[in-house]
Computed example of a mutant assay.
Amino acid sequence: MRQLTLILLVAISCFSCGKATDNVPSIPVNYQAALGTPALSPLNVAGGTVVINGYGVAGLIIYRKINGTYAAYDRCSSYQPEKKCACTPDGTGFTVTDPCSGSKFSLEDGTPVKAPATKALRSYRVSVTQFEIQVTN
């Protein structure tokens, strides 16, 4: 019985290990800007999306959720992140698309809504004061 348990534990541990490259790399992010800047004006309304280049792996997507809170994601697709494909906002205002694979992700929570992606976009913390927005990890 102990041998069977040991064999099962070894088999489970071997098959449960994933590749380290399956995830979007964690790169320090510290973006902040005044909410009144013209570049951030789309965030004045629910469903507004802004793309910020130069941060994270492939840039940032900042989204104002329907409930008025904000979400921020790395633009790097979670599907084959080693390709560093930068997701782009769709015309709908609710999803972004990976141009390399065709995967789509929800801007409300970053989860994939169209295959082949199975993992959510890397998300970041968003802090908002009366005059400024800050995105960090």
Rank of each mutant, 00 (worst) to 15 (best):
R2V: 13
Q3H: 15
L4A: 12
L9C: 10
L9G: 08
V10Y: 02
V10K: 00
I12M: 14
I12A: 14
G18E: 08
G18T: 10
T21W: 11
T21A: 15
N23I: 15
V24F: 00
I27H: 02
I27L: 13
P28G: 03
V29K: 02
V29N: 01
V29G: 01
A33T: 04
G36M: 10
G36D: 13
T37H: 01
A39P: 08
L40F: 10
S41T: 12
P42W: 07
P42K: 07
L43D: 03
A46I: 05
G47M: 08
G47F: 07
G48A: 11
T49V: 15
V50M: 00
G54V: 05
G56E: 09
V57T: 13
A58I: 05
I61Q: 03
I62G: 01
I62E: 05
Y63L: 05
R64D: 03
R64I: 06
I66Q: 12
T69A: 13
Y70W: 08
Y70A: 07
A71I: 05
Y73P: 01
D74F: 05
S77G: 02
S78Y: 07
Y79N: 09
Y79P: 03
Y79F: 13
P81F: 02
K83A: 14
K84C: 06
C85Q: 06
A86W: 05
T88L: 15
T92L: 07
F94L: 14
V96A: 08
V96W: 04
C100N: 08
G102A: 09
K104I: 01
F105A: 11
L107E: 07
L107N: 08
L107K: 08
E108R: 04
D109L: 10
G110E: 02
G110S: 02
T111M: 15
T111H: 15
P112D: 04
K114H: 13
P116D: 01
T118K: 11
A120N: 12
L121I: 02
R122V: 00
V126K: 03
V126L: 01
S127H: 15
S127D: 15
T129K: 02
Q130A: 14
I133T: 01
V135G: 05
T136R: 03
